[in-house]
Amino acid sequence: MAAHTTNYVATFIEVAEDCPVEHASEPPATEKPTIAALHYRLIAEQPYARTSDDVIFETHALRTGVPLDDAEAREAFFSKGQPCLRSSPLGKRYGWGIHHDAEGRVALVPRESEEYALLAADPALAHTRAMRSRRA
């Protein structure tokens, strides 16, 4: 059974066309961390340390109590397709671009930053957008 992946390589996910904010913001802290808050924490605390698959699985594990180092659980999780970071609230709602480096590791880039403008204009990267919140 082939494993699915959410990883991109040398790709920049720009914020969604209907993202409601002009400046990137940290998702609010809640008693039970939201997917947005977990994605933010995992990526922002260690930029370029994790791949998209790492972030998606660790978010699942933290929300469900699965041990992070459970290789069988990870394999079972990725035996079905999983939504990639294009569907993350970070790019849809909170104004963060997501840069995947040449090894597929991810970092957050605030939409109002010079780095965002440079990455958005970089012809060496593949470009895609975060998914829209609403249909056009």
Rank of each mutant, 00 (worst) to 15 (best):
F77P: 02
V9D: 04
D122W: 09
H39D: 14
R63I: 04
E103V: 02
A49K: 07
A71K: 12
A120K: 09
D18L: 02
A49C: 04
R135P: 05
V9N: 08
M1I: 11
R86N: 10
P67S: 07
I98N: 04
E114Q: 14
A24I: 12
R135A: 14
P33W: 01
E26Q: 15
P27L: 05
E22M: 07
A61W: 01
K32D: 09
K32N: 13
R50S: 13
A102E: 15
W96H: 07
A120C: 00
F12N: 04
R63D: 00
A136Y: 13
S88D: 04
A73Q: 03
F77D: 00
R86K: 13
P33R: 08
R50E: 00
R105Y: 06
A73C: 08
I35W: 01
A126D: 13
G95M: 03
E17K: 13
H127G: 09
D69F: 00
F78T: 02
H23R: 15
I98F: 03
A136L: 12
P110V: 08
A3G: 06
W96G: 07
L108G: 10
H100F: 13
T5F: 11
S52T: 10
D54I: 03
T51Q: 11
V66H: 01
S25K: 12
P67W: 05
Y40S: 08
P89F: 04
A3V: 13
E14D: 10
P47T: 14
I43G: 10
E72H: 14
P47A: 15
L108S: 11
R93E: 14
M1S: 12
S25T: 15
A102M: 06
R74H: 02
L90R: 05
R41A: 14
P28Q: 03
I35H: 10
V55Q: 00
K80A: 11
D70T: 08
H127Y: 10
H23Q: 14
P83G: 05
A3F: 12
P110K: 09
D69K: 02
K92T: 10
I43F: 04
E14R: 15
Y8I: 00
F78S: 01
E114T: 14
G104N: 05
R74L: 00
V9M: 02
S88L: 03
P33Q: 08
D53I: 07
A121G: 14
R134A: 07
E114M: 00
A29T: 14
P67A: 09
